[in-house]
Each structure stands twice: as structure tokens, then as C-alpha cells.
Computed example of a mutant assay.
Amino acid sequence: MNIFLFHTNADYLIGLRLPLMRALVQRGCRVSAWAPKLSQSHSDELRGFGIDAASYAIDATGLNPFRDGMNFFRIWWLLLRKRPDVVLANNAKPVIWVTLAAALAGIERRHCLVGGLGYAFTPEPGAASFRRRLVKFVMGRLYKAAFGAATAVIFQNTDDRDELVTAGICPATKAHVVSGSGVEVAHYRPAAAQPVSPVFVMVGRLVADKGVREYLQAARMVKQQQPEARFLLVGQIDPNPTSLRTDELAVYVDGGIVEWPGAVRDVRPWLAQANVFVLPSYREGVPRSTLEAMACGLAVVTTDAPGCRETVDAGRNGILVPLRDADRLADAMLQLARDPAQRAAMGRCSREYAERRFDTRIVNDDMARIMGLSPADAGSMEVLT
């Protein structure tokens, strides 16, 4: 069984899809990973797991029809020559252009993995801008064409599925849901001893839609009432125009409110210092950063938004707060800052919830079933660590 997996970013391809690709390889499938501008280090890492790796042309953002059209025909010619048995397209542009090209090339199994609906479908306060309405209109039409050509469409939360099915963009008969990308619970474990004082951590790109500004504002408010609390912010300044600026962040770092190590290769040492994970994001598929924190036994404070709410089990392992509301976020953080017993209990529930629902073995089995892989193709889909 020859499977091609397409993504728009090599780092995310490896960070989010490597467990699935390894599971497929370990059960006898031949897997080829495709991403634009794949570096030699990316290729070496993938090939170390028996995964073929190659670059292809796709414009991850933007709505340039000429460029998208050229890339579409390149992808079609690639698939026509290579003839994989299965195509799995992940992220908006591959979902659209790879799926349509695969249909034109006669590839029998064409699967779309929708990790989240992103910018176009994220609500704005007040009336949506003309640009956002235009992007949503165009993306809706392109998604509808791609989903019509797909064998199956795999969503990571029920909100995204329901929105696109209700809008007539995705046929209900093709729509499936898995529990995010999953997390390797054997790799992320609770620390031997958690800190006594409240320590909050946020991990992610420092862009507006992740709620980073609300996190910083809430940290300032909590610090005024709980001066012993620590606040960690793990992530890099992003080229996105909505990204936090260096001078904005410096106010909080120089003021002793947050500690900022920047981007890190391994988040586990930073999660081990904390007992509460915070993600005030406006919309997600299912945030991998939260799943990693849950596996490490951290209580969760996140927004009552698509994808984010999937990570909180009826308030047992965390607290949901409204979007774009730094005051309510600070209230939830203060509640946990003042109650060590609740922090610990929620952390234990987080670990149990991660094991029960978000283990990569569970997600991989679901992916294999949806993709129509027989036991001979995919076995039990376990990930060896």
C-alpha cells in the first residue's frame, strides 16, 4: 500500500503527522511525505523512520489563481506519474488542490484531513471585514469542490464538521471526526514533583488568534494578586501580521511578569515546571500543545471555542472561558492559583483524559478505519516508542 501525505509545512508535517506515518510504515505501508522546500535535515529525519520525503510546489497562503493553477497541474502530473494507492491531504491548500488533482489523475482513495478551519472561519468581534468575508466565500466554494471529489473528509472536532455539513460544503456521508492529532502519552508524562506555587504556561505561535495578548493581560492581573505565581510563554515571534511585536513582549518580560524562552525543540522541560496550561485561542482543530500538557498532568484553562473545548472534560480537568476576554481568563487563572488541591485534581484528570481519548494509538486506528486500510494494510496501527 503506497500512501502519499501532503502538507504545507515540513515542521508541522513532522511534528503532527510523524506518529501516524511511523505507524503506517511499521505495519508494512510505504509512506511518502511531501512538503514545500523540504530541507535536508527534514528529509534525513523522515528517512530515518523509513519514510520517503520530497518537496512539491504549493502556495500555502494567498489567493493567486495563476499560481494556484500552475501548482495544481504540477501536482496532477506528479500523481499521474507516481500513481500512489492513497492520497492524504492535510491543510487548506493541499486539501483543495491535491484532492482535485488526485481525482483528475484517477487516484482511487482521496482523503482530506481538516486540522482546523483557520482564518476564514474564525469569528471577529462585530461585523466581519470584507477581506475575511471574501476569503470565506472563496474557501467555501473551493472546499465544496474538493470535498465532492474526496473519498472521505476527516475533521478533528465536531464543530468544524457540523458547520461545513450544515452549510452544504461537505457531504454528511463523507464527514468523519477523529480526536485531533493525538499525543504519544508514553513520551509526555507528569513530572515526578509538581511545583508548589502556581506556574502557568502557554505554548504556541505568538499570533493574535492564539490569544497571546489576552494571556499577557491576564498574567499581569493575576500577578498583582498572586505575586508568587510564574508565567511562562513558549513560542516564537511569527511573520504573521497579527503576531505579537518584540517591543510589546519586552514590556512583560522586562517587567518580570512573563518568562519567554522563545521557541524550543522539546516542550517537556517547560511543561514540567508548570501546573496549569493556558491557551486562549479563538479556534483550533484540536490543539496539540494542549494535549501534550494534558499528558504531562497539567490543569487546562482554555476558551469555549471549536477545538479548544474538546480538551476539557465537563470541567473536570480544566476551565472554559469566553473568547477575547482577558478579565474572565484572569478569574479562571486566579481560581486555580488559589487552590492547589484543585490544580492537582484537574491535572490527574487531564492525564486520564489524554490516555482515554487522545492517545495516538486510538487516533491512528480511527484514521486507518476511515482511510479503508484493512488489517493486512495497517495492522493495529500502534506506535513503537
Rank of each mutant, 00 (worst) to 15 (best):
A60Y: 01
A167K: 10
R268D: 00
L100K: 02
V86Y: 01
F147C: 15
N91F: 07
D85G: 08
V383E: 04
R47D: 14
L164W: 05
L216T: 03
T158K: 09
Q273G: 08
A191W: 00
T122Q: 08
M70Q: 14
A344F: 13
I154P: 15
Q226K: 08
A127H: 07
E228V: 13
A368S: 09
L63N: 06
G48D: 10
A332W: 13
P123L: 02
Q226A: 14
G106N: 07
Y143H: 11
V185E: 06
E355G: 03
A299D: 03
I107A: 09
L104I: 04
S243R: 03
D304S: 14
F6W: 05
A60S: 15
V300R: 01
E382Q: 14
T151R: 12
L244V: 13
V138Y: 06
A105Q: 06
V153A: 07
T385F: 14
N9M: 12
F66L: 15
L329P: 13
Y12M: 13
P239G: 11
R268G: 00
Q273F: 08
T158P: 00
N317A: 04
A101P: 01
A101G: 00
M367T: 03
H176A: 13
R133P: 00
F147D: 14
I3F: 05
D44R: 03
R83G: 09
P306S: 05
C29R: 08
A10D: 01
V196F: 00
F137K: 15
K93M: 07
S374D: 04
K136F: 01
A54H: 10
R67I: 09
N2V: 12
L16V: 06
G148I: 01
I154D: 11
R83N: 06
P94C: 09
L78C: 03
L216S: 05
A295L: 04
K82N: 15
E355N: 11
